[in-house]
Amino acid sequence: MSQARDFPGAAHLVLADGVVHLDPEPAVFEAMLEGWARQQRTRFLKWDATIKPRLSLVRRFAEFADQYPWQWQPAEVEAFFDHLRVKNPTFTVSAGRNYQNQLRLFCEYITDTRYGWPDTCRARFGQVPVQILHEWNTVTHVSEYEGQPGRRPLTYDEIQALFDAADGRVDEIRSRRRKGALAAMRDSALLKTFYAYGLRRREACGLDMADLRRNPKAPDYGRHGALFVRWGKSANGSPPRRRTVFTVPEMDWVVGVLEHYLAEVRPRFEPGKHPALWVTERRGRLSRRSANEAFETARQAAGLPPELDLHCLRHSNITHLVEFDYPERFVQDQSGHLYASTTAIYTGVSDEYRNRLLQRKLTERNTELWEDGF
């Protein structure tokens, strides 16, 4: 029999010695979940974003299989995913892989002898847990991008249509003498900022007034030379990454947008000493849900495809920076991507840009041939 060590989440740390449970199966299952949660908390994983959804999925699968983890076999997990796909035809490959990875991690935890669960289950139930997910019943990763095909960068005309719709909503509300014009002006400035800086939802909604930065290399932009992003996407167990996003000349129109918002719009919300850049009528910070709703309202008014979402503005910014011929590393740093391959996934350059690039290369080639005397 192997000796379990005092790892966070070990069986003997979450199961009291000498206690006889009237219903041992659910007691051991709950102890497994508590042990796994403890192990993940030790790794500084986030409760709401990571640990809680994982525990929920394991409970969901156990309910579907009507078995406890030491009874699970590959057939149960295969039936589970078949059920998910039949019940929800739009269930995506990426979602399926995410579910499978979470269940695999749980099985790795309960089958690891260092945590003592195999010995515990053998002694109490005469069975031991096994790994039920393997190369033959999991999704094969064959493509870098597995998102919805409809999600893409907006074209320049679509960007303009979206912004015109957001501005038009202000005039419409005013013409009807209804409440909401102030919020509509804020939403218009918000969407333009999302695009101009290629921000994620949490990054934009988490901005404070103190995050407006000057760029000594672009003094004409004043306090809007850059944004200091403090709520960037974090890796497992790490705090949010920080970065500075510069205002680029091709999008310096956002300077006037932000100046108008700060001078004419935000003060009318009477935020007092609230630090948030984007505030609500109730003098609080704008939520990510409200940012989504702002985009959806403008998208519908502009008649754009429903599969486009707020995150597509980030795709658009990255794509357009590439089309503006900014170096790959600059675009990567602006976006806050650790790897250039991630930036490449977000990029969907237009045919017009590719034609310009091809024409430029052909011109350079012809010039070289002429200089060489051919």
Rank of each mutant, 00 (worst) to 15 (best):
A181K: 08
A123M: 11
S94F: 12
A165R: 02
Q127A: 08
K87G: 12
V128K: 06
G150F: 14
A75R: 11
H141W: 15
V142C: 02
T92M: 10
K179Q: 15
G150I: 04
D157E: 14
R104F: 05
N101Y: 14
R174C: 01
L154C: 06
L84H: 03
R178W: 00
K179H: 10
Y115N: 04
A123N: 04
D112R: 07
H83W: 07
R104D: 09
E146W: 03
I110Q: 08
M185H: 07
R174N: 07
R174E: 08
E135I: 10
T92C: 03
D164W: 11
A166E: 07
P89H: 14
R177P: 00
S188K: 07
V77Y: 07
V93D: 09
E158N: 04
A189S: 13
R174Y: 02
Y68G: 03
K87A: 12
G116F: 03
P149R: 13
A166W: 01
R152D: 11
Y109C: 11
V139S: 05
W117L: 04
T90N: 08
A189W: 13
F163V: 10
Y156A: 12
G168L: 03
H83S: 10
H141P: 00
Q71W: 11
R151P: 15
G96A: 12
R176C: 00
V128P: 00
V128H: 00
W70E: 02
Q131R: 14
A183G: 01
D164N: 11
G147F: 11
G147T: 07
G168M: 03
T120Y: 15
L105P: 01
Y156V: 13
W117H: 04
D112T: 05
Q73N: 05
V128A: 10
T120D: 03
W70T: 00
Y109S: 13
V77R: 04
H141M: 09
E108P: 01
A181H: 06
V130P: 02
T113P: 01
I173Y: 00
Y145S: 06
R122C: 04
G116H: 05
P69V: 01
E78F: 02
G147K: 04
D82T: 13
V170L: 02
G96K: 13
P149D: 13
T120N: 05
R85C: 09
Y115K: 02
F80H: 10
Q102A: 06
L133R: 08
R124S: 09
K179G: 11
Q131F: 13
K87Y: 11
A75F: 10
D82E: 12
A95T: 15
T138I: 11
N98E: 10
Q127T: 04
A189H: 12
L105D: 14
A184D: 03
P153I: 08
E158Q: 15
G150E: 12
R114D: 11
E158R: 05
Y109F: 15
D157A: 14
W72P: 14
M185Q: 14
W117K: 05
D187L: 01
Q102F: 04
D82I: 12
A184C: 07
A95G: 01
Y145L: 07
G116N: 04
D167C: 06
I110W: 13
H83Q: 10
P129R: 05
L154P: 10
P129Y: 05
V77D: 06
W136P: 00
I110Y: 15
S143I: 09
C121W: 12
F106G: 09
A123T: 10
F125G: 11
G96R: 15
A161T: 06
L84Y: 03
E78D: 11
E158V: 08
L162G: 13
R174K: 13
S188H: 08
